[in-house]
Design a protein around this nucleic acid. Structure first.
Lengths: 344, 344
DNA sequence: CCGCTCAGCTAAATCGGATTAGCAGGATGC
DNA sequence: GCATCCTGCTAATCCGATTTAGCTGAGCGG
């Protein structure tokens, strides 16, 4: 766009050397002998002219565009997903790479065409990301390419995955509950959210529940009940209201998602119950809402930023991308919704 | 990355023609005479080999990478900003373009280096975006380049701006209030939010207030008061609580941002006042939270998606980018928080 | 004084396309 | 029968770098 850029040929001419010499001087390679005097003259000319290499042209020869593509289902749309992108961007920037962001919106054809668009622009690698942790089958265009799966798993597909450590998060929720003294009257709202189409339990709900129950059991505690419902505000409100209406008086609620917690807050409020005075609430995700809720919600943070960062770091680490599963810890955000058991 | 791609030379060989012929046949240009037979053979060969042009290589000659760069302060971080990116992405995809997304986080040096990184990769244009509507001075690297300002204004800088039509939104809020029968007891919470460093009133708060007061006046109504405070949940809660504690009983609250509305809801709830039964609330932004609040919030939507889309469309429209200001309407989302005046 | 080595540099090829200039051969005009 | 025109194609360049192969002249050993 506009005004001709300064090229290496310009620099070479200005320094009175050949383009070859300029190239070697600028790239700082030592395997080709360039006198200090020449090198200095080239560098000085480049500085004076404000020379910047044309990455696109260079890539034609080197095969590296210093560019990474990210394809997601609809990650840019979700409230926290910006963090994934930001984490990835940060890591990329630290190594002078740039990110193409694309979104296929669950459309397979769009997905393929976006991958093509990325490949046509010679990206060095592709990050295939999903909004929720789940099993996927990446588009065939990605086979044999440098790929990292972000927030998803694809058994049999030759690429590393980066996912939140949901199992450990479930355990941490249980530990927090136990530490606060809760052993009875604990209810889980939201349940497993098992998606039928996906094999066994890597899915957030399953793992969170598994970790939760495991540590609760080890600690001599247990769940009084598990209410399976959608992970949204409305269901959280409805189910907790129903629970209270049935005469149950829980002492702690483990909400499987912050949105559910928000609904629970509303139901608890209407019933005249205070958090955490009457009922403690611990949650998962740490969406924006978690910190503005009153009282602020204690929750296990989905490490989106770290997820994005690690995906890029794996790529920039160089070498082949081994198909390992990298689990990123979900830190506990201790705020105000978790207290001791009511009446103690 | 991996396996050599099929090049045009491969296609030409397969079709038994020269690379020149292949190039013309593939690009479908008619100013160079290619027989239908040859053209068909080339196209067929390309299909058979799965040929895809190398956009990067092509751009070396054509100067067009079919790529647009987006630099923002911290747009990816804000809750709604994903929409800007999505709108921009959609528009780009419709024309086979891809987007580089970057974020400078308010750091001038980072901004410059990101713009350089974009320019080094020969982007066709740059979108300079901000999280909140405000005046900016784009980095000098952008001068003389193809640029569109998104959600910001830079007087004297030769580029078009795309911003929300805040003034009209203020008017629409007033119209909605009047239509519901409100003429008295109307309070504005959040105020002008004038940022001292920026000249006159393009800023959201100023324009919203101006439009609001203008139409209210024309409709024979007026504001009982304007409370200047930060646009966040805590201030909304605090200010409305204080207002109620002082014995004032508003009939309608115009909250200058959804976050303020959320705080207002909390204060109103604690005071035993219902929305919209006792007090109507109308707001601006339409953040995610607006639709999950109970009752759902009537608000004027910040048209982020359209903003992103229009910015890209201006670029792809071709021709020079005239320094006009494009104002995008903020649609009214009528939900449940606005009713008739209490007691009627 | 001759042949060798080596430091220091340059010419030329390459990457994958787009584009300009030009060439061969048949049809056409006169 | 000869110049001209047009059709259909190809050779050669170019875009902005990197990289390979090779050239030149000084220093050195014998």
């Amino acid at each position: 766009m506009s005004e001709r850029r300064v090229t290496m040929a310009d620099v070479a001419r200005e320094a009175g050397v050949s383009p070859t010499t300029a190239s070697f001087a600028l790239s700082g390679r030592t395997d080709m002998r360039i006198s200090d005097a020449s090198r200095e003259r080239v560098l000085e000319a480049a500085r004076r002219l404000g020379y910047r290499p044309n990455v696109t042209a260079r890539s034609l020869r080197t095969k590296s565009t210093q560019t990474i593509g990210l394809v997601s289902d609809r990650i840019t749309t979700t409230p926290f997903a910006g963090d994934v992108i930001r984490g990835a961007m940060e890591a990329a920037r630290e190594r002078d790479h740039l990110l193409f962001i694309t979104e296929a919106d669950g459309d397979r054809a769009a997905e393929s065409s976006l991958v093509h668009a990325l490949l046509d622009r010679q990206v060095d690698a592709v990050i295939y990301a999903t909004m929720f942790t789940r099993y996927v089958t990446p588009p065939k265009e990605l086979f044999g390419r440098r790929v990292v799966l972000l927030n998803c798993l694809a058994p049999g597909f030759d690429a590393p995955s980066v996912v939140p450590d949901e199992l450990e998060a479930g355990r941490d929720a249980a530990r927090a509950l136990l530490a606060a003294g809760h052993t009875r009257g604990i209810w889980a709202i939201g349940g497993h959210q098992a998606v039928p189409a996906t094999p066994e339990g890597i899915i957030a709900g399953n793992e969170r529940m598994r970790g939760l129950e495991e540590v609760l059991r080890e600690g001599g505690a247990r769940l009084d009940g598990v209410i399976e419902c959608d992970w949204d505000t409305l269901d959280g409100y409805r189910e907790v209201s129903a629970l209270l209406a049935a005469g149950t008086r829980p002492r702690a609620l483990v909400c499987l998602a912050d949105r559910v917690s928000f609904g629970a807050y509303q139901a608890l409020g209407e019933a005249g119950l205070s958090v955490p005075g009457d009922v403690s609430v611990i949650s998962f995700d740490d969406q924006d809402i978690a910190s503005v809720l009153r009282p602020a919600l204690t929750t296990l943070k989905l490490p989106h930023h770290q997820l994005g960062r690690l995906a890029v770091e794996l790529i920039l680490r160089g070498g082949p991308l081994e198909p390992a599963v990298h689990r990123v810890p979900m830190p506990l955000r201790e705020r105000a919704s978790l207290g001791g058991p009511a009446g103690t």
